[in-house]
Each structure stands twice: as structure tokens, then as C-alpha cells.
Write a protein that binds this DNA or RNA. Structure first.
Lengths: 338, 338
DNA sequence: CTGAAAGCGCTTACAG
DNA sequence: CTGAAAGCGCTTACAG
């Protein structure tokens, strides 16, 4: 049998209440008593049962993370583990545990959100997805359950969220390509289900405008966001007879496919076509040529997201907080035209 | 206030015990009573409190996953999310939840294992690491806590584990390179802390022997397993004046670095040097040239790992089970010498 | 087929 | 500074 708080109480000649208070380091217990209790706990190898504690406290110190993996590739994207590392690092320091669920579609997500919130297992939820019109967000707001979205949601003023400034991210990259002399810049991988891609596109458009470059809708290509379909997207574009001088892909993985296709067509990157991605995956620096990208600081997204969630779980005052994580444009050979 | 089993009992004019049994679909409750109870549960929007249930049942239906991320890069490796997907998929079907912890060293791992096992939060543990002389394994065996290791541990006959046959994996790849005409084959990324690298090395040696190729210890290079240090490892090797005709790297990430270095030195892959990796990361097919690798079926590793763990948590009969997940050699241009 | 009661292992308002 | 008691919301052996 495992040793309980009652065993400790008996051995220490105090009440279970006193042991409980000693563990919680209550100022109402004398130092001497605490010391005695801790000694006995040590000797008897006592560990508090967190389930019992959770039931009594009506709080578990567990948060749920929902990873929306629309495709396998999305889930394999290195930026998820990075966000997770960020969350875990802050959570660990604050004695929180992390329950993880990966979901493949919105319906499944709603089901899991339902379970996680109603079963009493989690104190708060972190949504790693920023789907447009996300039903989970509506629901979580409705039941007033603490949650934070990593990724700006569409109702941004009524939700706690953390994200990069993706408009600025798109702007910076476009500006960079323009400075490299590109005028016909294709923008690949716009996925209307993901706000992040729409924001980056918005930044792209703004940069063109600021540089008096006319917008050519043909250069904007919809497609999956995080996937390895860059090859096909580029192929489709060029088979329409369009050969841009620069290509911005919404994710590095797409950019790799783009470069592969260009290589096959005998076009040189960056001299014939400059190519850039976003999210700065670890391999971008090893690609041939090394890929220009934007580091989104996924670790910080996760860490900050958890901080917001903690605030949200603790505070009795309702508010909607947001946090913007800075990004860095990482210029590599793939856009450095001679 | 949330609605409890007692509220349902009152509304249905039965005892809480009956409601509890109805939820558990006990055959001892009449169909009529069940129907009445379910209807009321629905109406009152009742969800069982899993914490209370866990306390009463002394079992939580939560498993803990420990990801050993010795380096950031290791954690970012696409094969972790893939394993996780596999675990999650089977866990979800069986109504298990997943608690995830990432640890950066063995001491931290022990601490977390301690917490996870003693606090009563998890019913079983999945270790995603196969460190040599892992203290957590020793401990888990000692306290007889249900656990499974993904990756063959050194005391393989006293532990439940799932893994690929990494000796065979190393053998297959080496054999392939030999068939491509390579005789001087370098083997990069042997990390004595990771059994998987030692096993692959063993397969390499066996293949050489079977083909009557003398082992040249200079061609075996120790290094980090999952990291982007391939460039340096290859550089060190060649600066000793060694130019192999084939290179096998213990992970695709290393192989990418190797190819980058070879490119810089003006050596053609595969014609001058054939290069292969392991683990078949998503980008391997997009690399220039596309990289020969071995698919380890990470999803299956995870799924099977969880199955073993379930068996281990449920069975009253002690046994040590293992599962071997098949692998596929994926031959791409990087080793296809003309 | 159903219920009363004890129990899971904690916490905490109340009382002293 | 400490304790007795009630309570968190379930489950289950026992009894009928």
C-alpha cells in the first residue's frame, strides 16, 4: 500500500490537516512541526497523491494542448515541437503538467475540447492553430474556460492570443526581394483556412504598394500551407507561362519544392529566380542554396502562450491579452542576386 | 455549479450508485433505468468528473511520455512528432490521455519519472529514448511500474520495448552502397550514448565482413546522433586526407551537412561520393540530390509502443514483450552512381 | 435489479 | 499554532 497523509500524520503525532498545511508550507504551522513532518515524510518515502489533491482543490495544474494537424506533414513541422518546448519549459517551472492531443479536423477538435473542459482534467487550454471561424474558440468563450490561442484568431479582440506580426513578416520579406531587384514576385501557399497565410499575403501586398509595384493576382497562388506541395504549385504557375523573378513561399517546406522544380527547369536560384520561405526550419541553412527565411521564434510563442494562459487561469479580472513575438529576417544565398 | 452524479440521481429518482453503474454500462442495471438516466444526463448536460473517478478507481487512464531531447535539434526531429502521432492515435481509440514531458538530461528524466510514477497521475510510461544504462529504466523496473521503451534498451530481456531492427537497417544500407560499387564507406555519427547508432554500426561491420571488405576504423566517425554537425564531421574526416567513395550518416540531418561540405569541395554526389542517411525525414526527397535513406515507420513505433504499454498495464501476468517494426530502404539519387 | 455506506486521499472553513 | 469534521465526486463490496 502506498503511504498516505494519514500515515504521516500518525507517525508524526499530528492531524492530517497539519501535514497537509506543512506540505503547502502554510505560515500557520510552526517551523518545528514542519521540520518534524518533513523528516518523517522523507523516511516513509511519502509522495502526495495529486489526484486526491486535484479533487479537493478543484484544480489539477494540468493544461491541455491541442495541436491541429490537418496533414501529417503539418504535424511533422519542426515548429510544433519548438512551441511545445517553449510551453514545457515555462510549465515545468510553474509545476504544471501538459496533456497533449493532436486532432485532424475541426469536428474532432471540438469533441476533444469538450472532453478536456468538462471532465475536469485540465485547468486551461492552449490551442495551436488559428483557423478561421474556429468553433472551439466560440465554445471556449461561451463556457468561459481559460484558453489561449497560439496564432491570431479572427475575433482578435475577444480572445487571449500570442503570435508574430505576420503582416510585418510578409512585408519585410517582400521588401527584401524588391531590394534585391525582383519586381515580379510570386506568393505561394495562401490557405484561406489559415489566418497566418492571409496576414503574410497582406504584408506582401502592402510592400508592393509602398514600392509602386502593381499587384498581379496571377502571381498569388493558393495551396496548402505546411506541406511539400511547393513543387506542384511552382509547376502550375510556370505552366501558365509565368516566370517570376522572385518567389515567396508561405513556408520553407514549400520553398524547397519550388527550388527543386526550378532546378529541374534549369533556372538558377537566386540569379534567375530568388526564392524565400518562412519559419526558418533547421534545414534551411543546409539547403542548396541556403534558404532565406524568417525566424518566428517558435519557442517564445510557446513560452509566452503559457504565460498568458497562467495569467488567464489565475486572474479574477476578465481581460483579453495578446502578445506579439518578434521575428528575424534571415537572409541567405537563395535571395542574394548578384 | 457543475452538475454531479448526485444531481442526476435525484432527478432520476435513483441512487448515485445506480447512475454510476449506468454510466459504466453495468449489466446489472435494467435497460429501462439506463435509458431514463441517459436521457436525464443529456438534459442536464452532465459530464463525469474524471478526477473523482480516477481517485475512486485508483487509475487515471493517462500515460506519460518522456521525450529525451539531448539537444534542441533532437527534439525538432520529425520523427518525434511521428511517434507521438502513432501513440496518440491508439491512445485516443482506447480512451487514454497523454501527458508529455520533455527532458534534457538523465537527471531531469529521473526526477520527472519519479514525479509521474509517485504522484498517481499516470498509469504507465512510455520512454522515447534508448540511452545506455538508463537510470530511469532501472528505477521503473524496481518499483514495478508499467512502462515501455521505444528503442531497444541494453537490458533488452528484462524490459518491454519496441524498435526497428537497427542492425539490419545498418546492414541493408551498407550492402546497398557496396552494390553501388563503394568500397571505402565512411560511417558517421556514432554516439555511444545511443544504442541505435551502435546497432547500425554493427550492421555496417557485418555487411563489410560478408563482402570481404576490411574494416578501416578511420572511416568510423563518432559524433552527435541527431544534429546538424554533419558538415564538421565530414570536414574533419577529409582533412585527415580520407576521401571515401561512400558515406553513411546515422541520420538524414547529418547527411545533409555531409553533402553540403562535399559540394563546397567540388565533389559530386553520388558520382564521386555516394551519401545516405537514416530515418527518412520529409525533406530527404526534396534535397539536391534526393537522399537515400531508411524509413523507420515512426508512426508504427509509437502505435505499437502504446499497444505494448496497454498490455503491460492490464495484464496481471508479468512478462517482457518486444516488438520489431519493419523498415524500408528508400533508394534515391544520392547513392545511384552511374 | 437497486441502494446505503464506506472509501479513494487530499484540502479547508470553522473552532479553539 | 493545531485539530475535528465536512467535502471534493466518484466507485464498489456488501446486502437485499
Amino acid at each position: 500500500m502506498r503511504v498516505t497523509i494519514n500515515d504521516i500524520a500518525k507517525a508524526a503525532n499530528v492531524s492530517p490537516a497539519t501535514v497537509s498545511r506543512a506540505i503547502a508550507d502554510s505560515p500557520r504551522i510552526s517551523k518545528a512541526t514542519k521540520k518534524k513532518i518533513f523528516k518523517i515524510m522523507e523516511e516513509m518515502n511519502y509522495y502526495p497523491n495529486v489526484i486526491a489533491r486535484s479533487l479537493a482543490r478543484k484544480s489539477t495544474n494540468i493544461i491541455g494542448i491541442l495541436v491541429m494537424g490537418t496533414t501529417e506533414k503539418a504535424f511533422q513541422h519542426p515548429f510544433f515541437p519548438e512551441i511545445l518546448r517553449g510551453v514545457a519549459s515555462v510549465a515545468y517551472k510553474n509545476k504544471y503538467k501538459i496533456l497533449i492531443s493532436s486532432v485532424t479536423n475541426m469536428d474532432e477538435q471540438r469533441e476533444i475540447v469538450d472532453d478536456l473542459t468538462q471532465s475536469g482534467i485540465t485547468d486551461g487550454i492552449l490551442l495551436l492553430s488559428s483557423g478561421v471561424k474556429d468553433p472551439s474558440i466560440t465554445y471556449l468563450k461561451e463556457i468561459q474556460f481559460p484558453f489561449v490561442v497560439v496564432g491570431r484568431p479572427d475575433n482578435e479582440n475577444e480572445v487571449n492570443w500570442v503570435d508574430n506580426d505576420n503582416i510585418s513578416v510578409g512585408y519585410k520579406m517582400t521588401q527584401h526581394l524588391i531590394e534585391m531587384g525582383c519586381t515580379e514576385i510570386a506568393f505561394l501557399g495562401v490557405d484561406r483556412k489559415f489566418i497566418v497565410t492571409l496576414d503574410r499575403l497582406k504584408g506582401y501586398k502592402m510592400a508592393l504598394q509602398d514600392n509602386n509595384i502593381a499587384l498581379n493576382e496571377d502571381l498569388i497562388v493558393e495551396g496548402k500551407f505546411v506541406d511539400d506541395t511547393g513543387y506542384e504549385l511552382m509547376k502550375n504557375l510556370m505552366e501558365k507561362g509565368i516566370v517570376p523573378s522572385g518567389v515567396i513561399a508561405c513556408d520553407d517546406l514549400l520553398a524547397f519544392g519550388v527550388i527543386k522544380y526550378l532546378n529541374e527547369k534549369g533556372l538558377k536560384v537566386p540569379d534567375d529566380v530568388a526564392v524565400a520561405g518562412f519559419n526558418n526550419v533547421p534545414l534551411s541553412s543546409y539547403f542548396t542554396p541556403p534558404l532565406t527565411s524568417v525566424d518566428i521564434n517558435a519557442f517564445s510563442l510557446g513560452a509566452k502562450g503559457f504565460e498568458l494562459l497562467m495569467a488567464c487561469m489565475k486572474s479574477e479580472y476578465k481581460s483579453f491579452n495578446r502578445a506579439i513575438i518578434p521575428t528575424q529576417l534571415i537572409i541567405r544565398e537563395s535571395t542574394l542576386k548578384k
